[in-house]
Design a binder for these strands. Structure first.
Lengths: 243, 243
DNA sequence: CTCAAACGTGACAAGATTGTCACAGTGCGG
DNA sequence: CCGCACTGTGACAATCTTGTCACGTTTGAG
């Protein structure tokens, strides 16, 4: 269902691309000049943009810069296409912040491969693809945390505490670190404030409460690994197995 | 000041890379096997990792998967290096989510170019590089908004409202859209709730209050362009004086 | 100019949030 | 087993947050 915007003035090439994109399961949107391309980038919300640099009228580089100025298209990945094979073009393209760069003639196979790689990267790193740790998922735009895709009703302090723990999932966060990160101060280490909020988090985490483990004498730790009933191998960190 | 972790078992190549990285202004960290590499990736917080795929003991692909499993290294960009030039390797590497891929022998110049491109991309798209709109900047990790780098003391509702406006900076957001995005419902269009929160936002925005413009009959709009005293170009309304 | 619709504003009360405290429970070294 | 240091818990009050309302102001069409 991924929409891909193709900004390419040569109709033959554009049609060829559209055909292949369609076959690969994408939904192509075609624009034959820069202005149309910009408009469609905004209104069509494509997941990715293929941008020819040799455009009539508005130059491809200008189109690219315009895309990066508009908050709506700022984060849409762009793959540049060009007939010019000079290394300095390549430098210019990548230097501007394009996500990839292909010189014509290119194989459709390679293009599709690179499209998939860019989309995969984007999915893994995009701010819209939220922080994940085990069954927990954060949506920073909605300021919402999900456990097993069910929204958790967290207060803002709980959200920040859990977010910090998730960002360091599998690693012990000591009390002063949490106090500094969530409350903005590192004194007051003997207050029971942190403990109380951990308790509240555990209540809201329900069946995942056991993942929020106590590192006695140090701080707290969020486990992302499966919970094994008899597992006592806590506090110290094992390198994650690559399965 | 960027640290770059080089995981490469051939000492000669590693040293050569280290030298060139140092000359280019990076701080190289060397690891000659996968396990050491994983440990240094975690403890050294490198900005980028160069990963040889032909490692003794733990295979490069395993190292990569382990890097992607650990929340601390999950978002660190990885450039893969390999002697194998087979396209299927390229597919495998990019398919796994590597940020780039080079086959030996490669030119140091090209490597440095690609490193810079990846870092630039990362900086532009990283969740840690916050949403920006004019003088406003969001830090989703700290849930903090800054105006001219001075932190704004926003409540969570104000934060979400301003975030939505920033994400669509320069475009009018109509009332129902804002109500849906921030409050989760689209009825109640005639309530004064939204207006009240806009008012509170304007107070806290201080001298930038005029950027939060009213689109009469529609909704609100955040301007990112410089405010020109005599500018009458938009759906503009008179705004409270910035004192 | 007149008027109705739309927006701005100050005040307020209900409700949510949060830090603190006292005390109970737990793990650990000796 | 004992005692100590550390953590868990429930209750509570101070504070913050937020939606609503009444009323004043502005806008733009006729």
């Amino acid at each position: 269902m991924n929409r891909i915007l193709v900004i390419e003035d040569e109709v033959d090439i554009a049609d060829l691309l559209a055909l292949n994109l369609k076959q690969a399961g994408f939904v192509p949107i075609l624009a034959h000049d820069g202005i149309t391309g910009l408009a469609l980038a905004r209104s069509g919300s494509p997941e990715l943009i293929l941008l020819d640099l040799n455009l009539p009228g508005m130059d491809g580089v200008c189109v690219f810069k315009a895309l990066r100025l508009d908050p709506l298209t700022l984060r849409t990945p762009v793959i540049m296409l060009t007939a010019r094979a000079q290394p300095e073009d390549r430098v210019a393209g990548l230097g501007l912040g394009a996500d990839d760069y292909l010189t014509k003639p290119f194989s459709i196979k390679e293009l599709l491969l690179r499209i998939k790689a860019v989309l995969k990267r984007r999915e893994a790193h995009s701010p819209r693809s939220p922080l994940c740790a085990g069954p927990l998922r954060f949506d920073p735009t909605a300021l919402q945390c999900y456990a097993d895709n069910a929204p958790l009703d967290l207060t803002i302090t709980e959200y920040r505490l859990l977010q910090h723990l998730c960002e360091h999932a599998g690693h012990v966060c000591d009390r002063s670190e949490l106090l500094r990160s969530v409350w903005g101060h590192s004194d007051d280490t003997h207050s029971r404030t942190l403990d109380t909020h951990v308790k509240r988090l555990r209540v809201k985490l329900g069946r995942h409460a056991r993942r929020l483990e106590t590192a006695r004498g140090t701080g707290y730790l969020l486990r992302t690994t499966p919970l094994l009933p008899g597992d006592k191998s806590v506090t110290q960190i094992r390198l994650p197995d690559a399965r």
